[in-house]
C-alpha cells in the first residue's frame, strides 16, 4: 500500500472518485434495461404530447408544439436518469460493499461522487439521444453558439444537482423501490411548470408555485437559449436553484451517509 500512503489526500480522493465512477458506469452498462426504461419514458412522453395532446395545446408562441416541449422533456429525462442514482446508492448501502469500501478508507463523498459523475455521463448520452429523436420529429433549434453552450452548461448543472439530490434520496429511503419513487417526484414536479403548457393557462392558485419552483426557470432558460429568444434573468435564477439544490444535497447526503454508517 505504499502508493496509497504516498498519494496526497486530494490525489487519493480524486483517484477514488474516478475509480468509483468507472465502477458505477460499468454497473450501469450491465443494467441496460433500467437505463433503457429511463430513456424510453421521456421519449414516449414527448411523442405522446407532440402527437396526441400537442394539437390541443396553444402555447401562444407561434412555434410548433415540439419546439415548446423539448426543453421540458430534456429535464424529465434527466429526472428519470438520476433516479437510477437513488436506486443504486440505496442498493450500495444495503449490501456489504459499503463496509468493504469503508474498510479501504474510501470516503463517503468519493462513493457518492462516483454515482453522481456516472449519472451525469448517462444523462449526457440520453440527452443527446432525446435531442436526436426530437430533431427527427421536427424540432428545429436556432441557438447562437454561446446560447447553445449556455444551454448545455445549464442542463449539466441541473443534472448534477438533481443527481446529487437523488443520491441523498437513496440514502434517506429504506429500500431500492422507495428510492426509485424519486422518478415520480421528478415527473410530478414538471407538470406544474411550463414543461407541457404555459403556466398562464393554469388556475391562478398554482401560479405562485409553478413560477417559483426550480424546474420552470431551467426550462424557460433552455427554451429561450435553444430558440434564440430573450431569456431575461431566468438563467441566473436557474443557476441559483441548481447551486442551492447542490449545496443542500451535498450537505444532507454527507450527514445521512455518516448516520447510516455509524
Amino acid at each position: 500500500m505504499s502508493d496509497a500512503a504516498t498519494m496526497s489526500p486530494g490525489g487519493r480522493a480524486l483517484n477514488n472518485s474516478l475509480v468509483m465512477t468507472a465502477r458505477s458506469l460499468r454497473l450501469s452498462s450491465r443494467n441496460v434495461d433500467a437505463v433503457f426504461t429511463s430513456l424510453m419514458l421521456p421519449i414516449m412522453l414527448m411523442l405522446i404530447f407532440v402527437y396526441l395532446f400537442g394539437g390541443a395545446i396553444s402555447t401562444g408562441t407561434g412555434e410548433p408544439y415540439v419546439a415548446y416541449v423539448v426543453p421540458g422533456v430534456l429535464l424529465l429525462c434527466a429526472g428519470f436518469g438520476s433516479s437510477g442514482t437513488a436506486v443504486s446508492v440505496n442498493e450500495d448501502m444495503k449490501g456489504g460493499i459499503i463496509d468493504r469500501l469503508r474498510s479501504l478508507d474510501v470516503a463517503g463523498a468519493a462513493i457518492l461522487a462516483g454515482h453522481v459523475a456516472s449519472s451525469a455521463v448517462r444523462n449526457v448520452v440520453s440527452t443527446v439521444l432525446v435531442l436526436g429523436v426530437a430533431l427527427l420529429i421536427g424540432f428545429r433549434p436556432t441557438p447562437t453558439l454561446p446560447g447553445a453552450l449556455a444551454a448545455a452548461g445549464l442542463l449539466l448543472a441541473f443534472i448534477i444537482a438533481i443527481s446529487w439530490l437523488a443520491a441523498a434520496v437513496g440514502l434517506l429511503t429504506g429500500s431500492p423501490e422507495a428510492a426509485g419513487a424519486f422518478s415520480f417526484f421528478m415527473m410530478f414536479l414538471t407538470y406544474p411548470s411550463s414543461t407541457f403548457a404555459p403556466i398562464a393557462t393554469m388556475p391562478s392558485w398554482i401560479h405562485g408555485f409553478a413560477y417559483n419552483q426550480p424546474v420552470t426557470p431551467v426550462i424557460e432558460s433552455l427554451r429561450g437559449l435553444l430558440l434564440n429568444q430573450p431569456v431575461g434573468t431566468d438563467p441566473w435564477v436557474a443557476l441559483a436553484w441548481c447551486g442551492g439544490i447542490l449545496l443542500v444535497a451535498v450537505g444532507l447526503s454527507g450527514r445521512l451517509f455518516r448516520n447510516r454508517t455509524a
Partner: peptide, 27 residues
C-alpha cells in the same frame, strides 16, 4: 474485514472487483 454479506458487486466479474479494490487501495 470480511463480513457476512457479500462485499463485491454481483454485476462485476471477480477480476473487475479485485482490480477495483486494488485501485482504491492506491495501486
Amino acid at each position: 474485514l470480511t463480513g457476512q454479506f457479500a462485499s463485491v458487486d454481483e454485476k462485476q466479474t471477480g477480476e473487475e472487483n479485485l482490480r477495483m479494490m486494488a485501485r482504491l487501495g492506491g495501486l
